[in-house]
Every structure is written in C-alpha cells, then in structure tokens.
Design a binder for these strands. Structure first.
Lengths: 236, 236
DNA sequence: ATCCAATTCAAACGTTTGTTTTAATGATAC
DNA sequence: GTATCATTAAAACAAACGTTTGAATTGGAT
C-alpha cells in the first residue's frame, strides 16, 4: 500500500509528477501547460523548473518513474518463467503474460495513476515528440530484447523478422486495449459491460492467436479480389 | 495519375492541406504551428484563416479529405464482397482485407501523402484532442458499424462484444503497423529488409489469427502463476 | 480600359507559452 | 537568537502562438 492515498502536503515533486502524468494522458504533452500542472498539483509555477529543471526534465521524470518499475516487473516475471522451465523453451502464452499481463496490471491500478501512465505510454510509440521517443526507446530496449529472444526460442519455426513484427503488432493491440472504451465509442454507443475485469483475458487470447497465426495468409489461396476502387493502381 | 506530382502553384488550399497533413503526422497537431505550415506550403500566414476559418477548420479539412475517401473505398469493397457472396456469410479474411487492406493501400501511397495521413489517423484513436476525436468518430461510425455486423454474421459463434473488442485490437495492430519501422527501432537497430512490400501479408495473417483465436485462453488451463512481483495485490 | 470580386500580403493584435529572477518563507544546526 | 540551508512565492521576461486588420494584387467579365 504505497502512495495509493492522496499524496501528503510535503511532497511537492511527487504531487507535480502525479498531476503531470494525469494531464499528459488527458491532453497530451504539448497540450498541457506548466501552469495547469502546477495549479492542479497545488504548487508554484516555478517549482517545476526548480525540481526538474524544466518541462523536458519533468516529462522525462514522469516516464522514468513508471517505466523503470514496469520493465523491472517484466524481467522478474521472465526470470521466474525461465527458472521454472529449467532450460526448456517457454510456452508462448506465458511469455506474453509476463510482458503484456504486467502492463495490464499496471494499467488496472486506477487509483495509483498507473492507468493514466499506461495510456500515455501507449501513445508514445507513434508519438511525434522525438525527445520522448528517444529515452523511452532507451528504457525499453534491454527488456524488449530479452522478451524477443525468449519468443524466438519458444517459436523456433517462425523467422525472427516475423516475430519482431508480430511483437510490434501486439504492442499496438495492447495500446488500444488500454486506451479502452473511449476509443470504442465510435463503434458502439451502448457498451457498458464489465470492462476492466474481462479485458485481460480478451486481449490475451487475441494476442496469442495473432502470434501463433499461420505464416502465410491463413485462408487458402483465392483469386486476387477487386475491392471496387476507382483507381487502377495495383495493391502493391 | 491524379495529384501525384507536386501541386501546381495556383492551388493554395491544396498546398496547405498537404503541408499540414505531413507536419501533423511528424510533429503532432498541437506541435505544429500555423507559421510552419504556411511557410512549408509557400503561402501566407493568413491564408489558413482565409480558406479554412482557422486552425480547427484546417484540422477538420485535413481529416475529412482522406477519411471520406477511405471509408468510401471500404464500403465499396464490402459491397463487392456481399454481391459476390449472394447472401451467404462472408469469409472473415475477406472482410478484414476490405477494411484493413484498403487502409494499408492508402498508407502505401507514399508520394500522394496517404502515408502521412494514415500515420496521423492511427494516433487519433487515443488522441487527447477531444475536438479531433469527435468528428473522426462521426466519420467512422457508419462504416465501422457495417463491418462490425458483417463480422458478426461471418462469425456467428463469437459474441458480439468479443468481436467489438477484437476489432478494436486489430485497429491498434494496424495503427502500429503503419507507424512502422520507426516504432520498432527500440527493438532492433539493424532491420533494413523489405518493409512495405511484406507488411500487408504480415499484418493480415496476424489480424486473422487474432480474430479467430479461441475464446478463452488458448493454452490449456494452468495453475495461476506468480510473476515475481514485490506487491501482493492480485492480478484482478 | 474599367470595374469587381477573390485572393494574397505584410504588419500588428492580444494571449499564452516556458523560463528566469528576486524576495520571502521554512526548518535545522550552531 | 542567529546563521544557513533548501524550498516556496510573486512578478516579470522574451518568444511563440492563433487570429485579425487593411491595404496590395490578381484575374476575368463587362
């Protein structure tokens, strides 16, 4: 039970981090002014520059705080799996659970702010801000590399390039899963069932199905179809 | 061969749309100033307000120009499929191809700017900007609804809620697929093979695998695993 | 050639942005 | 009590933002 309650009045940097995390997730980084952050945090405008050296430093701190912990958990879960397997190749479903399940777990932490952060993180992979992309990639690289090679060992019949792409696709699916109901509203207005509880198994079975899909188009070959476009350009 | 070449000097609104589309995709909407757009387009700063009524109007126009056409193609492809099937339920792979293949086709149009737009569009589903989300959802709704019900008819054994979620997951995978190599760099530094040509079949087989995955966790039931976290909170 | 409407242009508008400055406040050690 | 430190506070900074203005300029129709 760490930092689940509202933060005490003394911890200005912590309050700023929490406010920034929530506001970045809601309005984007560029769309969130420092005045909004500090007023939400009950702090003075200059406090951000004092404690974090500027807005860039604050952004970096917001990401680092959670990302370090998330990847630590992921690697710990993978360690447990590999210890249990004792040299044998791992089950793909277990690997996915270690990677994506950990993230969903953090995203389910509504009160602690993990939900806000995971939503923010999901946007980062096609985030315009090069500066953010840079150090998020740095933080990701070693963890992703270990999971990638674990998947390669678990699926030796699948080429490495294919696993790389499918890993990327899975990240996209998870990103939208966490963005969640808000992104579904264009599709279904009703839609008020149990979201968070069934989300994890839903996503997991989807990811596993995609990861283990047949290499070439699953359906038997069919004549190239005309999709009814006006153009005559080929489908490339 | 329409508008593939650089735009002629007369068409100021068109040049502004092209420039805005590319810059929005690179730096985000909030991160792109009107001065940058107009200077890139070789137009005067006031031209945006004159032709589009303001930045909001420009954003709307950028989305509408491509989105209307994209969804028109999608529905046309679905029309062809349903005409061919003559009442019989459609093959899921064909439905996915009509929806996602059309998008990938637009994204492959490097010279015409479709690539920029699709990347921009992919970010929109977890986009902070409520104003953008609003009318993109409007534009999407009727098209997505038709594809959703087509999928429901093609997969009668799968609950509608499940299809809805999987459709959402597939959108996420496609979004990351189009964001493409840039998002993969944290994983693999090398990685210079044929990207665009093999991307479509890669994504399609992944999507189909995910869509048709078994409903509950594919792997036979296993004892709940401890992922090695420090916390004692349950996985919810 | 003349007029008119549409378009382009340079300049300025008032806000808002991130950052900096300088003084006030607080707690702790001497 | 006083000195010393880290922190907070209010005010001001220049720069960049979206928008507006009013005068040039253009291209056809009369």
């Amino acid at each position: 039970m760490v930092a689940v309650q509202a933060r005490q009045a003394g911890d200005t940097p912590g309050r700023i981090l929490d406010a920034a995390e929530a506001l970045f997730a809601c309005h984007g980084i560029d769309g969130t002014s420092m005045r909004l952050i500090t007023s939400r945090a009950g702090a003075n405008l200059a406090a951000v520059n004092y404690h974090f050296g500027g807005k860039d430093g604050l952004v970096r701190a917001v990401f680092q705080r959670r990302l370090t912990e998330l990847n630590r958990r992921r690697l710990a879960a993978l360690d447990v799996l590999e210890a249990q397997a004792a040299g044998a190749p791992l089950r793909p479903s277990r690997i996915l659970d270690a990677y994506f399940g950990t993230a969903l777990e953090m995203a389910a932490d509504e009160a602690g702010g993990g939900r806000h952060f995971m939503r923010l993180l999901g946007r980062t992979h096609n985030e315009p801000n090069q500066f953010v992309r840079g150090f998020v990639a740095e933080e990701y690289a070693p963890c992703a590399a270990r999971f990638l090679s674990a998947l390669c060992r678990a699926l030796p019949e699948v080429p490495r390039d294919e696993i790389l792409w499918r890993f990327h696709f899975m990240m996209g699916a998870m990103s939208f899963a966490i963005a969640g109901v808000d992104g579904l509203q264009p599709l279904a207005g009703e839609f008020g069932s149990d979201d968070t509880s069934r989300l994890a198994p839903r996503l997991m079975s989807f990811l596993l199905g995609g990861l283990r899909a047949p290499l070439e188009a699953a359906e038997p070959a069919a004549p190239p179809l005309d999709r009814g476009r006006g153009s005559t350009r080929s489908a490339a």
